[in-house]
Design a protein around this nucleic acid. Structure first.
Lengths: 137, 137
DNA sequence: ATACCCGTTGGAGTAAACTCCAAGTCAAAT
DNA sequence: ATTTGACTTGGAGTTTACTCCAACGGGTAT
């Protein structure tokens, strides 16, 4: 709005600094088609615009949700086609998979806790003398 | 205890069936030193004992807790040295990392939910006309 | 004897998301 | 003039945990 140079350009190091992505990652995202190739300067160096920066920041927001790059890709595509419905469902789909992930990790945690409790029994002597080798479940 | 052939032998397919691991995975675990090489039969084929089976099942129990193979390795080592303290701390350490994992995924989920709500606002028209391109946080 | 099936090996390939590298260009600073 | 520093490229390497493959051996069924 104010104070922001809408027309300045950024080199790859600037973008890296602004986004927290490494230059390598930026080139990688470009290579896989996640971000569009920016203009090039005098000696072939990338020259990003403020709009470019905005789009890359947007990608980082999606990545912050741990959305896989393929899905980010799909999301960007839907975004460019102004298909908000599709954007929404992709995000909601992602929410579901994250919920599933949490459920799996929670079940895993329960299992570990169970093992730890069982372990306590072993240390308490309840099972310590038996031939229960490799049988802590 | 009863009805279980303590002295029968198993080929790799039998072990695969009993454990749910593939023959390839069994050979892989053996290659990385996670399970000890079993006896070999007439023509060089693996001949697992009941004890072998037990140990492999044990590994699958650890893997069920999503413990990384390296850590399973450490656990087995500690187990073989009868260092129960160490076994316990490895498991507890693992519990902590799983809890951290859950915390991260939960934060991710919150972020996604926030985005979805924000999205709703967009669809409700609050932001739909603005030049807010690439600015859904 | 021939096909068939199960096993063997070393090594390559897969997925995801980077990360690193060598070799090269180019301009500014000394 | 030369060093320094930032950038370029294609391509290889990293991690984890497998999975697949070709080429081969050997016992069983017909």
């Amino acid at each position: 709005m104010y104070g922001v140079d809408k027309d300045r350009t950024y080199n790859i190091a600037d973008i890296a600094e602004q986004t927290g992505l490494s230059p390598d990652t930026l080139r990688y995202y470009e290579k896989i088609g996640l971000i569009k190739p920016p203009e090039r300067g005098y000696s072939g160096q990338r020259k990003y615009s403020s709009a470019d920066l905005g789009k890359i920041v947007f990608v980082t927001h999606l990545r912050n949700t741990r959305m896989p790059l393929k899905k980010v890709q799909d999301y960007i595509d839907a975004y460019n086609e102004q298909d908000e419905e599709q954007c929404y469902s992709l995000l909601d789909e992602h929410r579901q998979s994250v919920e599933a992930e949490i459920a799996e990790w929670s079940a895993t945690l329960d299992l570990i806790k169970y093992k730890l409790e069982h372990f306590q029994e072993v240390k308490d002597g309840k099972l310590s003398k038996g031939e229960d080798q490799y049988e802590h479940e």
